[in-house]
Design a protein around this nucleic acid. Structure first.
Length: 486
RNA sequence: GGCGCCAUCGUCAAGCGGUUAAGACACCGCCCUUUCACGGCGGGUUCAUGGGUUCGAAUCCCAUUGGCGUCACCA
C-alpha cells in the first residue's frame, strides 16, 4: 500500500477577522502538513451570502502571510483542485446533492422555513417531506417552487468515528437532524460543501474546532453515502479567555484583543504571537524549549503533542514570548520596527532614536508600550518629593537638595560636543569619587531630577544624553527649585 | 433539557501503573546593578470528589460534581 500524501486545509469564512483560535487551527494544519512533507490548502467558505465581507479574502491572505503560513494551494496560490472559493463551485454541489436524492440518501423539501413544521423536534423541522410522493415532487419542481435538499438520516442505531485526540466518538442517530444540504438560494450549507470539497481536494486530515465533534457523524454518513474514504479527524479544543470572576469561557471580545490583527496592532511581534499560539494546546514533548521559529515548529510538530482540553489565553505569557523576541532582535531592525509606535517625537529625541530604541528593546513586551515608556522624556512629570526616597541607596529629598547644585555646576561646564553618555558617565564618576558619595545615591538623585519618574528605561546618564544639555539643565534646575521650595 | 467532549500549580503544561509529580509564565524572597529591565539563586499543600481494579493509581474503570460544546436554509 502506498503512503498517501498528507493534505490539510484551512477553510475560513470571509469575515475580515482572524480569531486567535482560527489562527491556531490554521497553524496546526499547516505544521502537520509540513512536518509530513504534505500540502496545506486554503479554501474560502463563502456560502453565506449575507455574511460576506468585501476584501475579506485579501485580508485572510495578508494575515496568513504575516503569520508566516504559506498555502501550497488556494485562491491566488494556484493548485489543481480549484476553484478554491466555494461560491465559484456552486454547480458542483447541486450535482452531488441530486445524486444523493437519486440514491435515496437525500430528498427535496418544499417547506417554508418560517411557516411549516416549526414545532418539529429537529430544529423546527419534522421530516414531513420525506414522505412526499414523486408526483407531488415533480409538480413542485415543474412550478419552479423553491426547495432545499435534506439529508436522510437513519432513524435508529448510532454512528461512530475515530478522532485522533478523542478516540472513538459515538452519537445516537436519533440525535441527527435531516440537515439541509442545499439551501433555497442554491448554495450548499457548510456541512455539505465541506464534505464535497474535502473529498474533491484530497484532504487526508481534517483539523477543526471541537464544536464539530457532535456534527461529524453527519459528515461520516455523507462520506458513506457517496462511498468515499473518510478522512482522519482531529478536533481541537477551544481557546478560552479568563473572565473577571475567575471563570473561563471561549475567548471573545470581552477578554480583550482576540484577533491576530488586534494583537499585531498592540505591538506584539507576529512571530511571537504565532510562537505563543502554537504552545497554547500543543507541546513538543521532547524538549522544554519554548521559543520556536516557524522552521523549528515544523520540525518538532506532531499530533501526540496536541492537548484535548481547552487552554486559557494568557496575555502575560504572550508578552514574555514577545519580549524574548525583542531581546534577540537586531537593534537596527528593532529601531525601525518600533519607530511608528513612538508617535511624534520632539527633535532632540528623534535625533537619538536609535539609542532610545536600544534602551527600549530589552524592556518592553509589545511596541504599544512605547509611548508611555518615553512620555517622561517628552514632558517633565510633575514634581514629587516622594520620588527621592529610596531605601537601598539611602536617598532622601534632603540629600538631593544638597547634591544637585554641584551636579548642575559640573554639567554646565560640559561642552555641547562632549554631551555623550560615555563622557557624562566619566565626569559624574569622577565627581562621585571626589565627593565620596555613593554612586547609587548620586545617580538616583540625578536620574530622578532629570526624569521626574521612579522607573525609567535607562540610567541617569542615558537620560541626560537623550534630553540634551539645555533640556537636562533646565529640568535639573526646576527640580532643585522645587526641592528648595519644600 | 437531550446528546457529546473535557478535568495535574493562578495560567500553559510534562507524566501514559512504582517519580522527591518536570519545565515555563506570573507571584514572593535574596544576590547583582547607575533606576527599571536583564541575569543568578531560592520559595509555594497542584493530581476536582467518591467508589472500585491492583501488592501499588495522577495514570485504568464507574459514578458524582464542575466546565465547555451542540441541537440554523451560520460557518
Amino acid at each position: 500500500m502506498t503512503q498517501q500524501k498528507v493534505r490539510t486545509r484551512f477553510a475560513p469564512s470571509p469575515t475580515g477577522y482572524m480569531h486567535i483560535g482560527n489562527l491556531r487551527t490554521a497553524l496546526y494544519a499547516y505544521l502537520f502538513a509540513k512536518a509530513n512533507g504534505g500540502d496545506f490548502i486554503l479554501r474560502i467558505e463563502d456560502t453565506d451570502r449575507t455574511r460576506y465581507v468585501a476584501d475579506a479574502v485579501d485580508f485572510i491572505e495578508r494575515t496568513l502571510k504575516l503569520a508566516g503560513i504559506t498555502p501550497d494551494e488556494g485562491p491566488g496560490y494556484g493548485g489543481d483542485c480549484g476553484p478554491y472559493v466555494q461560491s465559484e463551485r456552486m454547480d458542483l454541489y447541486k450535482k452531488y446533492a441530486e445524486e444523493l436524492v437519486k440514491t435515496g440518501h437525500a430528498y427535496y423539501c418544499f417547506c417554508d422555513p418560517k411557516e411549516d413544521h416549526t414545532t418539529g423536534e429537529f430544529g423546527g423541522y419534522d421530516r414531513t417531506c420525506r414522505n412526499l410522493s414523486q408526483d407531488v415532487i415533480d409538480e413542485h419542481l415543474k412550478n419552479g417552487d423553491p426547495y432545499v435538499i435534506r439529508q436522510k438520516m437513519p432513524l435508529d442505531g448510532e454512528t461512530s468515528y475515530q478522532d485522533v485526540l478523542h478516540g472513538t466518538v459515538t452519537i445516537p442517530n436519533s440525535e441527527l437532524e435531516d440537515q439541509v444540504l442545499l439551501k433555497r438560494d442554491g448554495m450548499p450549507t457548510y456541512n455539505f460543501a465541506n464534505v464535497i470539497d474535502d473529498h474533491l481536494m484530497g484532504i487526508t486530515h481534517i483539523m477543526r474546532g471541537a464544536e464539530f465533534i457532535t456534527s461529524t457523524p453527519k459528515y461520516i454518513l455523507l462520506y458513506q453515502s457517496f462511498g468515499w474514504d473518510v478522512p482522519v479527524f482531529i478536533h481541537l479544543a477551544p481557546v478560552m479567555g479568563k473572565n473577571e470572576d475567575g471563570s473561563v469561557s471561549k475567548l471573545s471580545k470581552r477578554h480583550g484583543a482576540t484577533s491576530f490583527d488586534d494583537l499585531v496592532k498592540m505591538g506584539y511581534l507576529p512571530e511571537a504571537i504565532v510562537n505563543y499560539v502554537a504552545l497554547l494546546g500543543w507541546n513538543p514533548k521532547t524538549t522544554n524549549q519554548e521559543i520556536f521559529s516557524m522552521q523549528e515548529l515544523t520540525s518538532h510538530f506532531s499530533l501526540e503533542g496536541l492537548s484535548k482540553s481547552p487552554a486559557v489565553f494568557d496575555y502575560q505569557k504572550l508578552g514574555w514570548v514577545s519580549g524574548e523576541y525583542f531581546k534577540a532582535m537586531e537593534p537596527a531592525k528593532f529601531a525601525e520596527m518600533a519607530k511608528p509606535f513612538a508617535g511624534d517625537l520632539p527633535d532632540y529625541l528623534a535625533a537619538h532614536w536609535d539609542s532610545l530604541a536600544e534602551l527600549l528593546r530589552t524592556r518592553i513586551e509589545r511596541l504599544g508600550q512605547i509611548p508611555q515608556e518615553i512620555g517622561f522624556l517628552c514632558e517633565q512629570p510633575a514634581f514629587d518629593a516622594e520620588l527621592y526616597v529610596n531605601k537601598r541607596n539611602k536617598v532622601t529629598p534632603e540629600k538631593a537638595k544638597d547634591l544637585l547644585p554641584a551636579v548642575i555646576e559640573l554639567l554646565e561646564a560640559v561642552p555641547e560636543s562632549e554631551w555623550t553618555n560615555d563622557s557624562l558617565y566619566a565626569k559624574l564618576e569622577a565627581h562621585i569619587e571626589a565627593t565620596g558619595v555613593k554612586k547609587g545615591l548620586m545617580m538616583w538623585v540625578v536620574r530622578i531630577a532629570a526624569a521626574g519618574q521612579k522607573v525609567t528605561p535607562g540610567g541617569a546618564t542615558e537620560i541626560l544624553t537623550l534630553l540634551g544639555k539645555e533640556n537636562s539643565l533646565a529640568r535639573l534646575k526646576k527640580s532643585l527649585d522645587a526641592l528648595n521650595a519644600m
